[in-house]
């Protein structure tokens, strides 16, 4: 997707799903064939959509799905903040913590014990809570993105509709403040 010779450098977009369910990314895909229109004006950098794992340059827009549940989420979000001009919290988990934040009123030890030891459907003959260098440490609670880094725009919804995402993106890329009609804003 890199720029062909002679073509004007297109602005880049990066997306990521942190403590989310990828539902917001599915909603991005729901813009259907309009993704072709989008591809004409932007280039995707790091994103699950093109499976690029690293940033390949500075991005005009970063889209973040999900809040921060573990230390890796925090690192990734901070990298997004460093590399993106405009950072968008996409969906309810990013803007408010969402479903994962339901654990916020329960002590972390209790969450892990229920998930790995005491839960009614748990099969864990070794009786150990997984702990490996490769597994990022959980945070004390799930944080919405704006409590970790400065967020420029919030797009609520679970998920936000494709219409809302497309309108917001074209607005941002057109350098105008996205004007989302009331019907497109849903807080679930």
């Amino acid at each position: 997707m890199s720029a062909r010779p002679g073509e004007r450098q297109k602005p880049k977009i990066a997306t990521v799903s942190l403590a989310g369910c990828f539902g917001c990314h599915m909603s991005i895909l729901d813009i259907d064939e309009r993704i072709l229109d989008l591809a004409k004006v932007v280039e995707f950098s790091r994103s699950p959509i093109n499976d690029l794992k690293k940033f390949d340059g500075r991005c005009a827009v970063g889209i973040v799905e999900g809040g921060c549940a573990n230390e890796e989420n925090v690192e990734v979000l901070r990298e997004f903040r460093r590399k993106c001009d405009i950072l968008v919290s996409l969906g309810d988990c990013a803007t408010m913590g969402g479903i994962p934040a339901l654990r916020n009123s329960i002590p972390l030890s209790e969450c892990l014990e229920t998930a790995y030891l005491d839960g009614p459907t748990v099969v864990n003959p070794l009786g150990r809570i997984p702990s490996d260098e490769e597994i990022p440490l959980l945070l004390d609670k799930v944080y919405p993105c704006h409590e970790i880094v400065k967020i420029d725009l919030f797009l609520p919804g679970c998920p936000p509709s494709a219409e809302a995402i497309f309108s917001a993106l074209t607005g941002i890329l057109g350098k105008s403040r996205p004007d989302l009609p009331y019907e497109l804003l849903k807080y679930d």
């Binding site: 230390e71 925090v74 002590p107 972390l108 030890s109 892990l112 809570i129 702990s131 440490l137 959980l138 945070l139 004390d140 609670k141 944080y143």
Partner: peptide
């Protein structure tokens, strides 16, 4: 924020 997880793990 990670202190508790460090203690547990």
């Amino acid at each position: 924020a990670v202190m508790e997880a460090e203690l547990l793990s």
